[in-house]
Structure formats: C-alpha cells, structure tokens
Nucleic acid binder design. Structure first.
Lengths: 125, 125
DNA sequence: AACAATTATGAAAATGGTTTTCATTCCTGT
DNA sequence: ACAGGAATGAAAACCATTTTCATAATTGTT
C-alpha cells in the first residue's frame, strides 16, 4: 500500500468526529479532492486495524465503523423525538469499562454507549 | 406470527448454549424435526429482539447472534473473536446514565452499553 | 359447513456492505 | 530505459439479511 494513500485515509479519518464507516470515509475523501476507489479504502482500513492504528467496531445494522486511535472519544445523548444531540462527559464510564474488562481477562477493550431520551423542548411545553 | 412457531424458535434458542446465529438456529430446528424456513426464523428473531425477549449482538465478522435472555437489565462483555459473553453488573453505569440525562434536562432515558474485547482464550495463551 | 377476510409462511429475488479477481498502472532498483 | 513487483479500482463474487409475492393456514361470520 502506498504511504500517500494511507496518509490520505488517515487524514480523512482524523477529520471525522468519532466512528465512521468505510463508505463515509470514502465520501469524505472525494469531497476533499482525493479520488480513491472504495476497494482501496477498504484495503487501507483493514491494514490499519490490523496494526491497531485504527479501532474497529460493528454497528447494530452490521456496518463496520472505524476510528483513528488516539482520537478522544465521547458519547452522545440523543433525543428520540427530534434527533438533537448533546455531547456528554463520560469519564466515569471510561474507567468503569476498563475495569470491568480487565476483571474478566478481556483485552483490547472497546465500548459503545448510547444514551437516548426526550429533550426538554420535545417533552411537552 | 404463530405462537407455535415462536415457541419452536424459542425452544431451539434455549437448547443452544450461549449465542447462536440465525442460521445455526435454523439448522437446529431442522435437526429436531421442525421444518421452518429461514425467512420465518429471521422474522421470529426480529420480533423477539424487538420485545427484548432475546439479546442480540454482532460478531466481528458481521454475523448477528441471538440469545434467550432473562428479564433483568444487564450489559454484556462480548468477545469479538468467538462471540463468548459475560454478563456484567453495571450499577455505576445505571446511575451515571441517569445523572447525565437529568443534567441535560432529558426525560424518559434509555441507554445501551456494549462492551467488547478479546477474551483470554482467543488472545493467544 | 361454507366462505370471505386476515394472517403466516417460504422460495426466490433483491439489498447492501464487504471481499475477490484480475487487468492495468505505478514504483523502485538496477 | 527496463524488468519485476506492488498498488489500484472496476466489476464480479460473497454472504447474511430483508423484501416480494404467491400460496397455505387460520380465524371469524353467517
């Protein structure tokens, strides 16, 4: 794989907040002028996850999602009614997840936390 | 959906230790004399997960896996390699989720937490 | 019982993300 | 410049899952 290509993918990944699917990354690359094929994007991501340079998770719908390692991550509180989103601090969860995983002898821990609710402006008034 | 069918699927699920894919459940049903189509199995599982009567996770290869679940609210630590699962107590997360939601003026809070990692037996040694 | 209306079923086709194939293009070292 | 290997991407293959749609089973009504 060409370093130039790897760098482009990494940059695209870094420019996206949180996890992104291969196709989203591909779209981002197109937007920023790079013309990489989808195949190549998949190849890069695969190699990067193999090197632990990128985190990989599966979304519930089966689509894979990638995140540049080292990117600080946070969680979202999503309104089920209007879709509005709030970023939330999750220190407590980070350390909890780590502790629980280690206690079970699991390695390479990831976690996804999804908070939903009804926001103030949707909940009546 | 016919209750008879739902029962058959539930029974098959219960006869399997841990998580099973839709296709594994379908195979089990065939072995035990039931002749249900794969489509119907998928339909049942979908409805059961919608009711929170079965747990659903994604294996790393993208295949979905199902497990009959109890009524208590809990979280899972899932091995991304073999799909093995450990139930996790999450007192800390329950209260955290509640606190964060209230601080943002959201109501009717729900949360899902998914912990994944590589279990001891899959991570080499 | 007869019969219409509704629901359940499953084979085959469609979907959609991901991987393979393979012919072509791009590098790299000599 | 040139041979040999690596990188690329369009199209085809893959595979779990969903949809379609025609048929079968069930239910309700007279």
């Amino acid at each position: 794989m060409a370093r130039k290509t790897l760098d482009a993918v990494q940059l695209a990944l870094a420019s996206i907040d949180g996890f992104a699917s291969a196709q989203e990354i591909h779209a981002r690359l197109r937007e920023t002028g790079h013309s990489l094929g989808l195949t190549t994007v998949y190849r890069c991501l695969r190699s990067m996850t193999g090197d632990h340079r990128v985190d990989f998770v599966r979304r519930d719908d089966g689509e894979g999602a990638y995140r540049f390692c080292g990117t600080s991550h946070h969680h979202h509180l999503v309104c089920r009614s209007c879709g509005d989103t709030v970023e939330v601090q999750a220190e407590a969860v980070e350390s909890w997840a780590q502790t629980v995983g280690e206690a079970s002898n699991f390695r390479d821990l990831h976690h996804t936390v999804e908070l939903t609710g009804i926001c103030a402006s949707c909940s009546g008034r």
